[in-house]
Amino acid sequence: MTVVAVLSMKGGVGKSTVALGLASAAWDRGLRTLVIDLDPQANASMALDVDGAAFTSSDVLADARPGVAADAVVVSGWGDSVSVIPAERSLEHRNVAQGRNSALRLRTALATLPRTYDLVLIDCPPSLGELTRNALSTADRAIVVTEPTHFALHGATEALEAIDVIAAAANPGLRASWVVVNRFRPDDREHRLNADRLAEEHGPLVYDPPIPECAGIPQSQRAVSPIHSWNSPGSREVAELMDDLLDTLLPPKRPEPRGPRLSLRRYLT
């Protein structure tokens, strides 16, 4: 089981796109996956074809008693292997501190639920408020998403600092896995300059290659389909990138168990 928070301080850089891309890669492999939408814009919930769910992540955080999150899990429109705790607009109310141990409410409400999945993805809102703090207090890996633009790079640095703060204060098991550059245009000089700057600042944390701008991504999201099922050259390239990114997040595969051993006893009797 791996719990990955996908975050950025700046909006519109593609957090949900990366979270959905990873969910798509997991869907393609048949991994049991739970997407927790913690963004009040609920874009991931929309793209996963969840509508009219009885409970949302807002209810989970408002209640926060151990294990209640299981009641908010619904199967996505992608199929049985991908489940969702959807978001709704009123989730914005939960972005401020609430009661004791406010940043641990999600972790408490999930209790042992993540153990029933191979992968849990938490899509964060574009802020470092209480929702993101809850995500980081629950996750064991964090991916920071950025665009190769000046302001977005600044937001990526802020997000990495937030990961360090939460790791030191509330979740020692948390670590930043990658800074993923999204919507990269190799023919844009400004994009190349900013990508170089990011590599200078954060070195091996920057995931290489960047995710290129691709028309297939918004098309597949509008069609509520995984990017892996979208048949265009650009979307296939993105799907392969997401496969590689997912490989870096999952624990290494154990060797295949051998077939039944020969038993000498069978031949001796």
Partner: peptide, 25 residues
């Protein structure tokens, strides 16, 4: 109370948040 899929540990049932219909603004 609800039981987990394994049927072992009882847990409380989730309640709807009181502000679910309240616009964030």
């Amino acid at each position: 109370m609800t039981t987990t899929p394994s049927g072992s540990t009882p847990r409380p049932e989730l309640r709807k948040a009181g502000d679910a219909n309240l616009h964030p603004s």
